[in-house]
Design a protein around this nucleic acid. Structure first.
Lengths: 138, 138
DNA sequence: AAAGTAGTTAGTAATGATTCCTATTTGTGA
DNA sequence: TCACAAATAGGAATCATTACTAACTACTTT
């Protein structure tokens, strides 16, 4: 875990480790601020800017995934294997979607002259929980 | 064109018409501010807030498409039939991608308990222009 | 055509997410 | 342990977007 950090970033600070490990095993796709609140319990003096800086670095290095959302803050995902996402229109939760990676799409785009690094698929609609309720969950 | 506006929005103002028609036939995926600059030539007193409000309304009503981008302002597309997008890592242009709509993905997600309204696929990489240059285009 | 009224606008302030700035601190290789 | 580049804390700044509100106007009803 923090060994992985060492491989790609010059220094392993306690803030960096805490931010990275706060995400491990979490499938709830927290926002930067939620991660900040969480890490602050261990490191009360940590700065929100530090959380942002490290989340950006970690995602640039491929140790975590940043998921931009259309109408709110980015969310972060410790799952680094390629997969897709579902955003609930009502409760705004993000779900991991486990369908096969559509590699043929990249090949098709390559044929059209683009040099593809990656692709993301985002589904929109109502999650199971919300589609069986009329209440405004959140 | 402005008849379409009338069908879905209570009033057809000159600002609304100008914003909508500024987008027609434009494949460059302009930002709200670019549209504002453009419309301002016809309506010098138009407000940026009016541009934002109408772009939001028009996209909510399905007359145009809003494309959120990970690291910058949203871009707008007059093409309303379902299609996908490519974002160039270097020049940040948005390209329309004409590959078949992947309807089977929605069906697969439906089987997994989600109620799908739509999906979007965004490809990342270098466009033709940028992959043949080393200069930092923009 | 005149009036009524609900929707819309302009201009600006406010918000929210994220990044920048800088003096200070700290991890790491020598 | 030393030296120094990298990272941090805290707050200011930035950028995109939305909220607010008094004035205005498109459209409906007389």
């Amino acid at each position: 875990m923090s060994m992985e950090i060492k491989q790609v970033l010059p220094r392993v600070t306690k803030q960096r480790k805490a931010i990275f490990s706060a995400l491990q095993g979490d499938a709830s796709h927290p926002t930067a601020d939620e991660i900040y609140q969480r890490v602050k319990q261990r490191l009360p003096h940590i700065s929100l800017a530090t959380v942002y800086r490290n989340l950006k670095l970690l995602s640039q290095e491929g140790l975590i995934l940043e998921i931009p959302t259309p109408d709110g803050p980015s969310r972060y995902d410790p799952q680094t294997h390629q997969h897709y996402h579902f955003l609930c229109d009502r409760c705004e939760r993000v779900y991991d979607v486990e369908i096969p990676v559509q590699g043929q799409l990249n090949r098709e785009l390559g044929r059209q002259g683009f040099s593809i690094r990656s692709h993301e698929i985002v589904f929109y609609g109502l999650c199971r929980r919300c589609s069986t309720r009329t209440s405004r969950a959140s």
